[in-house]
Design a protein around this nucleic acid. Sequence first.
DNA 1: TCATTAAGTATGC
DNA 2: GCATACTTAATGA
Length: 216
Amino acid sequence: MFSNKTEQYKAEWQQLIQAGMKRKYKAGDVIYIQGGKEAGLVCITKGRVKNCIYFSNGSEKLICILEAPSITGETSIIDDKGSIVSTEALTDTEVFVVSTSTIKKMLEQNPRLMMFLLECNAEKMRALQFQAENIRLNTRQKLARLLINFQVSGVHTKGTETNVITMTHEQLADFLGTTRPKITEALNEFEKEGYIKKNRGSIKILKYDGLAAICR
DNA sequence: TCATTAAGTATGC
DNA sequence: GCATACTTAATGA
């Protein structure tokens, strides 16, 4: 995912880190809040982060999960409006924040850096598109679809195994707009049918075609 | 071994 | 039938 991009755009990635201000966060810390304008470009160098929208009733919609190396906050750089999501550290996290004015000057001088930002943004657009397609499905189908396609649906983890998704039931519930017991129930069914293997905090996918049949 | 957090389950709206 | 709250289990300090 983004790790490929930072590989491809190695020089640009270094440039961003050098221009940024180092900050550290503990798991659960809020890095920036939805609507804020002062965030700048956040370059995640260590750890794992979630982007989400909070509702007044306390529930939340998870938009994506990002794992270092990755960037977030690029949308408000582009249009000068408030950030569209809140970003919160899921693990201990290290970031380099490049201020909006600095990143804008850098972008004017470096088309490759611009492309890097656009590519990251495009990837997130595709993830949102993928999530939008879920709207007509029930929880069981949404979950099956997410498990098969989690890499392109907003869960940008660089896990060594491509068939292991490291998310809790609660995170999956926030992602799909349902509640944790519903996810537990559906996952138990999937496991019983032999499609997945559950572990605390992660899920291993065993039969892709079985899951694919559910959401067809 | 204890504290923290994820997962499982029961109950009440 | 679903969400909340309570219980149990697992993990890491």
